[in-house]
Design a protein around this nucleic acid. Structure first.
Length: 414
RNA sequence: GGACAGAUGGGAGAGCUGGUUUAAUCCGCGCCCCUGCUAAGGGCGUGUAGCCUCACGGUUACCGAGGGUUCGAAUCCCUCUCUGUCCGCCA
Protein backbone atom coordinates (compact mmCIF):
# COMPACT_ATOMS: atom_id res chain seq x y z
CA UNK A 1 0.00 0.00 0.00
CA UNK A 2 1.12 3.49 -0.75
CA UNK A 3 1.98 5.86 2.08
CA UNK A 4 -1.14 7.96 2.67
CA UNK A 5 0.68 10.52 4.78
CA UNK A 6 3.20 10.99 2.04
CA UNK A 7 0.44 11.63 -0.47
CA UNK A 8 -1.16 14.14 1.82
CA UNK A 9 2.07 16.05 2.36
CA UNK A 10 3.48 15.81 -1.17
CA UNK A 11 0.38 15.67 -3.28
CA UNK A 12 1.81 17.08 -6.52
CA UNK A 13 4.91 14.96 -6.41
CA UNK A 14 2.92 11.79 -5.64
CA UNK A 15 0.49 12.57 -8.41
CA UNK A 16 3.31 12.96 -10.90
CA UNK A 17 4.89 9.67 -9.85
CA UNK A 18 1.68 7.74 -10.19
CA UNK A 19 1.03 9.17 -13.63
CA UNK A 20 3.87 6.94 -14.80
CA UNK A 21 1.69 4.04 -13.78
CA UNK A 22 -1.44 5.42 -15.30
CA UNK A 23 -3.22 6.61 -12.16
CA UNK A 24 -5.10 9.87 -12.76
CA UNK A 25 -4.98 12.83 -10.40
CA UNK A 26 -8.68 12.54 -9.73
CA UNK A 27 -8.28 9.20 -7.98
CA UNK A 28 -5.58 10.68 -5.85
CA UNK A 29 -7.70 13.68 -4.95
CA UNK A 30 -10.46 11.32 -3.90
CA UNK A 31 -8.02 9.37 -1.79
CA UNK A 32 -6.70 12.46 -0.10
CA UNK A 33 -10.22 13.65 0.59
CA UNK A 34 -11.23 10.32 2.14
CA UNK A 35 -8.12 10.31 4.26
CA UNK A 36 -8.90 13.78 5.61
CA UNK A 37 -12.50 12.76 6.27
CA UNK A 38 -11.37 9.71 8.18
CA UNK A 39 -8.97 11.68 10.33
CA UNK A 40 -11.62 14.27 11.10
CA UNK A 41 -14.23 11.65 12.04
CA UNK A 42 -11.75 9.71 14.14
CA UNK A 43 -10.67 12.80 16.06
CA UNK A 44 -14.27 13.63 16.90
CA UNK A 45 -15.09 10.05 17.82
CA UNK A 46 -12.08 9.74 20.07
CA UNK A 47 -12.94 12.90 21.96
CA UNK A 48 -16.41 11.51 22.59
CA UNK A 49 -15.04 8.17 23.65
CA UNK A 50 -12.72 9.89 26.11
CA UNK A 51 -15.73 11.71 27.53
CA UNK A 52 -17.67 8.46 27.77
CA UNK A 53 -14.82 6.69 29.49
CA UNK A 54 -14.35 9.32 32.15
CA UNK A 55 -18.10 9.50 32.84
CA UNK A 56 -18.28 5.74 33.17
CA UNK A 57 -15.49 5.85 35.66
CA UNK A 58 -17.35 8.48 37.64
CA UNK A 59 -20.46 6.31 37.42
CA UNK A 60 -18.69 3.51 39.22
CA UNK A 61 -17.42 5.88 41.85
CA UNK A 62 -20.88 7.35 42.47
CA UNK A 63 -22.38 3.93 42.88
CA UNK A 64 -19.71 2.95 45.36
CA UNK A 65 -20.28 6.08 47.40
CA UNK A 66 -24.05 5.66 47.16
CA UNK A 67 -24.58 8.94 45.35
CA UNK A 68 -27.51 9.60 43.05
CA UNK A 69 -26.70 8.60 39.47
CA UNK A 70 -29.86 9.66 37.64
CA UNK A 71 -28.43 12.86 36.17
CA UNK A 72 -25.15 11.22 35.22
CA UNK A 73 -26.92 8.31 33.58
CA UNK A 74 -28.93 10.67 31.40
CA UNK A 75 -25.78 12.48 30.34
CA UNK A 76 -23.93 9.31 29.59
CA UNK A 77 -26.85 7.90 27.59
CA UNK A 78 -27.10 11.08 25.55
CA UNK A 79 -23.40 11.01 24.74
CA UNK A 80 -23.63 7.38 23.75
CA UNK A 81 -26.41 8.13 21.32
CA UNK A 82 -24.56 11.10 19.88
CA UNK A 83 -21.59 8.84 19.18
CA UNK A 84 -23.50 6.52 16.86
CA UNK A 85 -23.59 8.70 13.74
CA UNK A 86 -19.97 9.71 14.25
CA UNK A 87 -19.02 6.07 14.57
CA UNK A 88 -20.85 5.29 11.36
CA UNK A 89 -19.14 8.15 9.57
CA UNK A 90 -15.71 6.95 10.66
CA UNK A 91 -16.46 3.39 9.61
CA UNK A 92 -17.66 4.46 6.19
CA UNK A 93 -14.66 6.69 5.63
CA UNK A 94 -12.36 3.86 6.63
CA UNK A 95 -14.02 1.43 4.26
CA UNK A 96 -14.10 3.85 1.34
CA UNK A 97 -10.49 4.83 1.92
CA UNK A 98 -9.25 1.26 1.90
CA UNK A 99 -11.20 0.22 -1.15
CA UNK A 100 -9.51 3.04 -3.06
CA UNK A 101 -6.08 2.80 -1.44
CA UNK A 102 -5.69 -0.95 -1.94
CA UNK A 103 -6.25 -0.52 -5.67
CA UNK A 104 -3.53 2.09 -6.13
CA UNK A 105 -0.25 0.74 -7.46
CA UNK A 106 3.18 1.41 -6.04
CA UNK A 107 5.20 4.50 -6.93
CA UNK A 108 7.81 3.77 -9.55
CA UNK A 109 11.36 4.76 -8.67
CA UNK A 110 12.41 8.14 -10.05
CA UNK A 111 14.99 6.46 -12.29
CA UNK A 112 12.42 4.19 -13.96
CA UNK A 113 12.26 5.00 -17.69
CA UNK A 114 9.13 6.71 -19.01
CA UNK A 115 6.96 4.63 -21.28
CA UNK A 116 3.58 3.11 -22.01
CA UNK A 117 4.22 -0.58 -22.58
CA UNK A 118 6.90 -3.20 -23.18
CA UNK A 119 8.05 -1.50 -26.39
CA UNK A 120 9.43 1.32 -24.21
CA UNK A 121 11.48 -1.00 -22.00
CA UNK A 122 15.22 -0.38 -21.99
CA UNK A 123 17.72 -3.08 -22.85
CA UNK A 124 20.66 -2.81 -20.44
CA UNK A 125 22.93 -5.53 -21.81
CA UNK A 126 23.12 -8.80 -23.67
CA UNK A 127 24.82 -11.86 -22.21
CA UNK A 128 26.14 -14.63 -24.49
CA UNK A 129 25.85 -14.56 -28.27
CA UNK A 130 22.99 -16.52 -29.83
CA UNK A 131 24.36 -19.57 -31.62
CA UNK A 132 24.32 -19.68 -35.42
CA UNK A 133 22.43 -22.71 -36.61
CA UNK A 134 23.26 -24.10 -40.04
CA UNK A 135 19.67 -25.34 -40.31
CA UNK A 136 16.36 -23.71 -39.48
CA UNK A 137 15.88 -24.14 -35.73
CA UNK A 138 12.53 -25.61 -34.74
CA UNK A 139 10.07 -24.33 -32.18
CA UNK A 140 9.82 -26.28 -28.94
CA UNK A 141 6.50 -27.90 -29.74
CA UNK A 142 7.92 -29.30 -32.94
CA UNK A 143 10.86 -30.66 -31.01
CA UNK A 144 8.47 -32.05 -28.44
CA UNK A 145 6.72 -34.03 -31.14
CA UNK A 146 9.99 -35.53 -32.35
CA UNK A 147 11.15 -36.45 -28.86
CA UNK A 148 7.80 -37.24 -27.27
CA UNK A 149 8.50 -34.85 -24.44
CA UNK A 150 5.23 -33.00 -23.97
CA UNK A 151 1.72 -34.47 -24.10
CA UNK A 152 -0.56 -31.54 -24.72
CA UNK A 153 -3.72 -33.50 -25.55
CA UNK A 154 -3.79 -35.57 -22.38
CA UNK A 155 -2.93 -32.54 -20.27
CA UNK A 156 -6.02 -30.85 -21.64
CA UNK A 157 -8.04 -34.01 -21.03
CA UNK A 158 -7.04 -34.08 -17.37
CA UNK A 159 -7.83 -30.44 -16.70
CA UNK A 160 -8.51 -28.04 -19.54
CA UNK A 161 -6.66 -26.01 -22.14
CA UNK A 162 -3.25 -24.65 -21.16
CA UNK A 163 -2.39 -27.71 -19.09
CA UNK A 164 0.26 -30.12 -20.31
CA UNK A 165 2.15 -33.24 -19.27
CA UNK A 166 5.91 -33.64 -19.39
CA UNK A 167 7.05 -37.14 -20.21
CA UNK A 168 10.23 -39.10 -19.65
CA UNK A 169 13.39 -37.06 -20.29
CA UNK A 170 11.43 -33.80 -20.19
CA UNK A 171 10.09 -34.60 -16.74
CA UNK A 172 13.56 -35.58 -15.58
CA UNK A 173 14.96 -32.37 -17.04
CA UNK A 174 12.39 -30.39 -15.08
CA UNK A 175 13.39 -32.11 -11.86
CA UNK A 176 17.07 -31.51 -12.61
CA UNK A 177 16.45 -27.83 -13.25
CA UNK A 178 14.58 -27.37 -9.99
CA UNK A 179 17.44 -28.94 -8.07
CA UNK A 180 20.05 -26.96 -9.97
CA UNK A 181 18.23 -23.68 -9.30
CA UNK A 182 17.70 -24.38 -5.61
CA UNK A 183 21.31 -25.46 -5.10
CA UNK A 184 22.63 -22.36 -6.86
CA UNK A 185 20.38 -20.06 -4.85
CA UNK A 186 21.42 -21.76 -1.66
CA UNK A 187 25.08 -21.15 -2.52
CA UNK A 188 24.24 -17.44 -2.87
CA UNK A 189 22.89 -17.38 0.69
CA UNK A 190 19.19 -18.03 0.13
CA UNK A 191 17.54 -20.36 2.62
CA UNK A 192 15.40 -23.01 1.00
CA UNK A 193 11.74 -23.36 1.97
CA UNK A 194 8.95 -25.70 1.03
CA UNK A 195 5.71 -23.81 1.52
CA UNK A 196 1.93 -24.23 1.16
CA UNK A 197 0.72 -23.87 -2.42
CA UNK A 198 -2.59 -22.58 -1.15
CA UNK A 199 -2.77 -19.27 0.73
CA UNK A 200 -5.62 -17.29 2.24
CA UNK A 201 -6.98 -13.97 1.00
CA UNK A 202 -5.14 -11.88 3.59
CA UNK A 203 -1.81 -13.09 2.24
CA UNK A 204 -2.80 -12.43 -1.37
CA UNK A 205 -3.71 -8.91 -0.32
CA UNK A 206 -0.39 -8.57 1.47
CA UNK A 207 1.62 -9.03 -1.71
CA UNK A 208 -0.83 -7.09 -3.89
CA UNK A 209 -2.67 -9.74 -5.93
CA UNK A 210 -5.91 -8.91 -4.13
CA UNK A 211 -8.27 -7.14 -4.20
CA UNK A 212 -7.60 -5.94 -7.73
CA UNK A 213 -6.41 -9.03 -9.58
CA UNK A 214 -8.67 -11.76 -8.26
CA UNK A 215 -9.64 -12.64 -11.84
CA UNK A 216 -6.16 -14.03 -12.42
CA UNK A 217 -6.32 -16.37 -9.45
CA UNK A 218 -7.75 -19.84 -8.98
CA UNK A 219 -9.95 -19.72 -5.90
CA UNK A 220 -10.91 -22.71 -3.82
CA UNK A 221 -14.68 -22.82 -3.86
CA UNK A 222 -16.44 -22.16 -0.57
CA UNK A 223 -13.17 -21.28 1.12
CA UNK A 224 -11.17 -18.14 1.67
CA UNK A 225 -8.24 -19.81 -0.11
CA UNK A 226 -6.41 -19.39 -3.39
CA UNK A 227 -3.85 -21.39 -5.35
CA UNK A 228 -0.69 -19.29 -5.31
CA UNK A 229 0.24 -17.51 -8.57
CA UNK A 230 3.88 -17.35 -7.43
CA UNK A 231 5.98 -18.41 -4.43
CA UNK A 232 6.44 -14.70 -3.77
CA UNK A 233 3.09 -14.84 -1.95
CA UNK A 234 3.90 -17.47 0.70
CA UNK A 235 7.58 -16.57 1.04
CA UNK A 236 7.00 -12.84 1.54
CA UNK A 237 4.00 -13.37 3.79
CA UNK A 238 5.82 -15.74 6.10
CA UNK A 239 6.60 -12.56 8.02
CA UNK A 240 3.10 -11.08 7.69
CA UNK A 241 2.32 -8.87 10.67
CA UNK A 242 5.69 -9.47 12.30
CA UNK A 243 8.28 -7.14 13.72
CA UNK A 244 11.77 -8.36 13.00
CA UNK A 245 15.01 -7.55 14.75
CA UNK A 246 17.30 -5.38 12.64
CA UNK A 247 20.09 -7.93 12.91
CA UNK A 248 17.87 -10.61 11.32
CA UNK A 249 17.92 -8.67 8.03
CA UNK A 250 18.23 -9.44 5.25
CA UNK A 251 16.15 -12.59 5.09
CA UNK A 252 16.98 -14.35 1.83
CA UNK A 253 14.55 -17.07 0.86
CA UNK A 254 14.16 -19.41 -2.04
CA UNK A 255 11.59 -22.05 -2.81
CA UNK A 256 10.24 -24.21 -5.54
CA UNK A 257 6.48 -24.16 -6.12
CA UNK A 258 4.01 -24.70 -8.87
CA UNK A 259 2.27 -21.46 -9.84
CA UNK A 260 -1.36 -21.19 -10.87
CA UNK A 261 -2.66 -18.39 -13.06
CA UNK A 262 -5.89 -17.98 -14.94
CA UNK A 263 -4.15 -15.82 -17.57
CA UNK A 264 -7.44 -13.98 -17.84
CA UNK A 265 -6.13 -11.19 -20.06
CA UNK A 266 -4.10 -13.43 -22.33
CA UNK A 267 -6.68 -15.27 -24.40
CA UNK A 268 -5.16 -16.10 -27.75
CA UNK A 269 -1.58 -15.35 -26.72
CA UNK A 270 1.01 -18.13 -26.82
CA UNK A 271 -1.59 -20.80 -27.29
CA UNK A 272 0.92 -23.23 -28.74
CA UNK A 273 3.47 -24.91 -26.54
CA UNK A 274 4.14 -24.46 -22.84
CA UNK A 275 5.19 -20.79 -22.77
CA UNK A 276 1.93 -19.79 -21.12
CA UNK A 277 0.24 -22.39 -18.95
CA UNK A 278 -2.30 -22.25 -16.12
CA UNK A 279 0.10 -24.27 -14.00
CA UNK A 280 3.85 -23.92 -14.21
CA UNK A 281 6.82 -24.53 -11.97
CA UNK A 282 9.09 -21.83 -10.72
CA UNK A 283 11.95 -21.38 -8.29
CA UNK A 284 11.61 -18.02 -6.64
CA UNK A 285 13.93 -15.74 -4.67
CA UNK A 286 12.46 -13.44 -2.03
CA UNK A 287 14.32 -10.95 0.13
CA UNK A 288 13.10 -9.11 3.19
CA UNK A 289 15.63 -6.33 3.50
CA UNK A 290 16.68 -3.25 5.39
CA UNK A 291 15.57 -0.25 3.28
CA UNK A 292 19.17 0.96 2.94
CA UNK A 293 20.26 -2.39 1.54
CA UNK A 294 17.52 -3.23 -0.91
CA UNK A 295 19.23 -1.77 -3.98
CA UNK A 296 22.31 -3.83 -3.33
CA UNK A 297 20.27 -6.99 -2.84
CA UNK A 298 18.27 -6.23 -5.96
CA UNK A 299 21.45 -6.15 -8.05
CA UNK A 300 22.62 -9.39 -6.46
CA UNK A 301 19.33 -11.07 -7.36
CA UNK A 302 19.50 -9.89 -10.98
CA UNK A 303 23.09 -11.08 -11.21
CA UNK A 304 22.21 -14.45 -9.70
CA UNK A 305 19.41 -15.12 -12.19
CA UNK A 306 21.63 -14.01 -15.05
CA UNK A 307 24.47 -16.23 -13.81
CA UNK A 308 22.15 -19.23 -13.81
CA UNK A 309 21.25 -18.62 -17.44
CA UNK A 310 24.91 -18.19 -18.27
CA UNK A 311 25.78 -21.42 -16.49
CA UNK A 312 23.16 -23.14 -18.63
CA UNK A 313 24.73 -21.57 -21.72
CA UNK A 314 21.52 -19.70 -22.55
CA UNK A 315 21.91 -16.33 -24.35
CA UNK A 316 19.79 -13.66 -22.76
CA UNK A 317 19.35 -9.95 -22.33
CA UNK A 318 18.73 -7.77 -19.32
CA UNK A 319 15.84 -5.35 -19.69
CA UNK A 320 14.63 -2.60 -17.41
CA UNK A 321 10.87 -2.14 -17.46
CA UNK A 322 9.40 1.28 -18.15
CA UNK A 323 6.79 2.81 -15.86
CA UNK A 324 3.84 1.68 -17.93
CA UNK A 325 4.96 -1.95 -17.95
CA UNK A 326 5.72 -2.16 -14.24
CA UNK A 327 3.64 -4.54 -12.17
CA UNK A 328 1.20 -3.30 -9.55
CA UNK A 329 3.48 -3.74 -6.54
CA UNK A 330 6.83 -2.99 -8.14
CA UNK A 331 8.84 0.21 -7.79
CA UNK A 332 11.46 -1.15 -10.16
CA UNK A 333 11.68 -4.30 -12.23
CA UNK A 334 14.32 -5.93 -14.35
CA UNK A 335 13.35 -8.75 -16.66
CA UNK A 336 15.69 -11.36 -18.04
CA UNK A 337 14.72 -12.47 -21.51
CA UNK A 338 16.13 -15.68 -22.90
CA UNK A 339 16.89 -16.17 -26.57
CA UNK A 340 14.57 -18.64 -28.30
CA UNK A 341 16.04 -19.53 -31.72
CA UNK A 342 12.88 -21.38 -32.78
CA UNK A 343 10.79 -18.29 -32.17
CA UNK A 344 13.65 -16.05 -33.24
CA UNK A 345 13.08 -13.69 -30.33
CA UNK A 346 13.86 -12.99 -26.68
CA UNK A 347 11.20 -14.12 -24.18
CA UNK A 348 10.83 -13.32 -20.50
CA UNK A 349 12.21 -16.05 -18.25
CA UNK A 350 12.75 -14.09 -15.04
CA UNK A 351 11.36 -10.93 -13.51
CA UNK A 352 13.04 -9.33 -10.52
CA UNK A 353 11.29 -6.57 -8.62
CA UNK A 354 11.92 -4.27 -5.71
CA UNK A 355 8.60 -3.34 -4.14
CA UNK A 356 10.32 -1.08 -1.57
CA UNK A 357 7.91 -0.77 1.38
CA UNK A 358 4.73 -1.24 -0.66
CA UNK A 359 4.13 -4.89 0.22
CA UNK A 360 5.57 -4.35 3.69
CA UNK A 361 2.85 -1.79 4.41
CA UNK A 362 0.13 -4.12 3.20
CA UNK A 363 1.57 -7.15 4.95
CA UNK A 364 2.68 -5.17 8.00
CA UNK A 365 6.25 -6.44 7.92
CA UNK A 366 8.46 -4.18 10.04
CA UNK A 367 11.72 -4.20 11.88
CA UNK A 368 12.97 -2.51 15.02
CA UNK A 369 15.32 0.35 14.32
CA UNK A 370 16.28 1.47 17.77
CA UNK A 371 12.93 2.08 19.45
CA UNK A 372 11.04 2.78 16.25
CA UNK A 373 9.37 0.30 13.96
CA UNK A 374 10.15 0.73 10.32
CA UNK A 375 8.77 -1.02 7.25
CA UNK A 376 11.17 -3.39 5.54
CA UNK A 377 11.72 -3.55 1.80
CA UNK A 378 10.63 -6.70 0.03
CA UNK A 379 12.06 -8.01 -3.21
CA UNK A 380 11.20 -10.97 -5.37
CA UNK A 381 12.45 -12.57 -8.53
CA UNK A 382 12.39 -15.80 -10.43
CA UNK A 383 15.50 -17.92 -10.54
CA UNK A 384 14.08 -19.26 -12.72
CA UNK A 385 10.79 -20.12 -14.40
CA UNK A 386 11.23 -23.84 -14.98
CA UNK A 387 8.90 -24.44 -17.93
CA UNK A 388 10.35 -21.62 -19.98
CA UNK A 389 13.86 -22.83 -19.18
CA UNK A 390 12.90 -26.20 -20.63
CA UNK A 391 11.69 -24.43 -23.76
CA UNK A 392 14.94 -22.47 -23.94
CA UNK A 393 17.07 -25.58 -23.55
CA UNK A 394 15.04 -27.43 -26.19
CA UNK A 395 15.38 -24.66 -28.72
CA UNK A 396 19.00 -23.67 -27.99
CA UNK A 397 20.36 -27.21 -27.64
CA UNK A 398 18.59 -28.81 -30.60
CA UNK A 399 20.39 -30.74 -33.29
CA UNK A 400 19.37 -30.84 -36.93
CA UNK A 401 17.64 -34.21 -36.46
CA UNK A 402 15.56 -32.75 -33.62
CA UNK A 403 17.41 -34.44 -30.79
CA UNK A 404 18.28 -32.29 -27.80
CA UNK A 405 21.58 -32.05 -25.91
CA UNK A 406 21.61 -31.63 -22.13
CA UNK A 407 23.60 -28.62 -20.81
CA UNK A 408 26.83 -29.67 -19.12
CA UNK A 409 25.91 -28.30 -15.64
CA UNK A 410 22.74 -30.39 -15.56
CA UNK A 411 24.37 -33.73 -16.36
CA UNK A 412 25.15 -34.50 -12.74
CA UNK A 413 21.49 -33.88 -11.89
CA UNK A 414 20.15 -36.40 -14.42
C1' G B 1 -15.65 -36.31 11.71
C1' G B 2 -16.83 -37.02 17.48
C1' A B 3 -15.58 -35.67 22.85
C1' C B 4 -13.18 -32.62 26.31
C1' A B 5 -9.80 -28.57 27.50
C1' G B 6 -7.70 -24.05 26.26
C1' A B 7 -6.22 -19.14 23.59
C1' U B 8 -3.90 -12.88 28.21
C1' G B 9 1.99 -8.14 26.83
C1' G B 10 9.26 -11.04 24.47
C1' G B 11 8.50 -15.78 27.75
C1' A B 12 5.97 -17.87 32.18
C1' G B 13 1.49 -16.74 34.51
C1' A B 14 -2.73 -14.23 37.70
C1' G B 15 -7.30 -11.84 36.86
C1' C B 16 -12.41 -14.55 34.41
C1' U B 17 -18.81 -14.12 41.03
C1' G B 18 -18.14 -6.99 35.40
C1' G B 19 -15.97 -0.55 37.92
C1' U B 20 -8.50 2.23 42.00
C1' U B 21 -6.10 -3.34 36.51
C1' U B 22 -3.29 2.80 33.51
C1' A B 23 -3.40 -5.85 32.63
C1' A B 24 -0.82 -8.03 39.10
C1' U B 25 3.55 -10.98 39.77
C1' C B 26 7.99 -13.54 38.11
C1' C B 27 11.65 -14.09 34.28
C1' G B 28 14.03 -11.87 30.28
C1' C B 29 15.75 -7.25 28.18
C1' G B 30 17.55 -1.82 28.62
C1' C B 31 19.51 2.31 31.50
C1' C B 32 21.32 3.88 36.21
C1' C B 33 23.12 3.14 41.36
C1' C B 34 25.90 0.29 44.88
C1' U B 35 30.14 -2.99 45.22
C1' G B 36 38.19 -1.95 44.60
C1' C B 37 37.53 -8.31 40.80
C1' U B 38 33.62 -12.12 40.88
C1' A B 39 28.93 -13.15 43.05
C1' A B 40 24.90 -10.69 44.95
C1' G B 41 21.80 -6.38 45.76
C1' G B 42 18.88 -1.78 44.76
C1' G B 43 16.21 1.99 41.57
C1' C B 44 13.81 3.23 37.08
C1' G B 45 12.15 1.69 32.43
C1' U B 46 10.47 -1.99 28.93
C1' G B 47 3.86 -4.03 23.53
C1' U B 48 1.25 -2.36 18.75
C1' A B 49 -1.44 1.15 15.75
C1' G B 50 -3.58 5.98 15.19
C1' C B 51 -4.65 11.10 16.49
C1' C B 52 -3.33 15.99 19.06
C1' U B 53 1.54 18.61 20.63
C1' C B 54 7.87 21.99 18.55
C1' A B 55 8.53 19.15 22.90
C1' C B 56 7.11 17.34 27.86
C1' G B 57 2.91 14.92 27.54
C1' G B 58 -2.20 13.73 26.46
C1' U B 59 -5.83 10.61 24.18
C1' U B 60 -8.40 6.36 21.56
C1' A B 61 -8.35 1.23 20.14
C1' C B 62 -6.26 -3.72 20.89
C1' C B 63 -6.29 -9.60 26.51
C1' G B 64 -7.33 -15.43 19.37
C1' A B 65 -11.21 -12.97 15.51
C1' G B 66 -16.05 -10.87 14.79
C1' G B 67 -20.70 -9.47 16.89
C1' G B 68 -24.01 -8.65 21.31
C1' U B 69 -25.58 -7.14 26.57
C1' U B 70 -24.12 -2.76 29.81
C1' C B 71 -23.18 3.89 31.77
C1' G B 72 -18.78 0.53 31.95
C1' A B 73 -16.32 -6.12 29.38
C1' A B 74 -9.92 -9.59 29.66
C1' U B 75 -14.21 -10.78 32.86
C1' C B 76 -21.19 -12.18 30.89
C1' C B 77 -23.77 -14.08 26.01
C1' C B 78 -23.50 -15.70 20.63
C1' U B 79 -20.70 -17.08 16.16
C1' C B 80 -16.12 -18.33 14.05
C1' U B 81 -10.83 -19.60 13.88
C1' C B 82 -6.79 -21.88 15.89
C1' U B 83 -4.08 -25.00 19.54
C1' G B 84 -3.75 -29.29 22.89
C1' U B 85 -5.46 -34.25 24.50
C1' C B 86 -8.34 -38.68 23.49
C1' C B 87 -11.25 -41.49 19.78
C1' G B 88 -12.34 -42.43 14.52
C1' C B 89 -10.31 -42.08 9.56
C1' C B 90 -5.96 -41.52 6.62
C1' A B 91 -0.66 -40.71 2.72
Amino acid sequence: MIDLKYIQKNFDEASKKLQKKGVDAQTLTKLEDLFSKLKEANAQLEAMQAEQNSMSKLFGQYKKEGKDITALKAKVDANKEAMLPVQERAREAQEALFSVALAIPNFPDDAVPEGQDETDNVELRKVLEPKNFDFKPKEHWELSEINGWIDFERGVKLAKSRFAILKGEASRLERALINFFLDTNREKGFVEYSVPFINNATMLQGTGQLPKFGDDLFKIEEEDLYLIPTAEVPLTNMYHDEILAEKELPLLMTGYTPCFRKEAGSAGRDTRGIIRQHQFNKVEMVAVAHPDKSDEIFEMMVQNASDILTALGLPHRVVELCGGDLGFSAAKTIDLEVWLPGQNQYREISSISNTRDFQARRAKIRFKEGKKNRFVHTLNGSALAVGRTIVAIMENYQNEDGTIEIPEVLKKYM
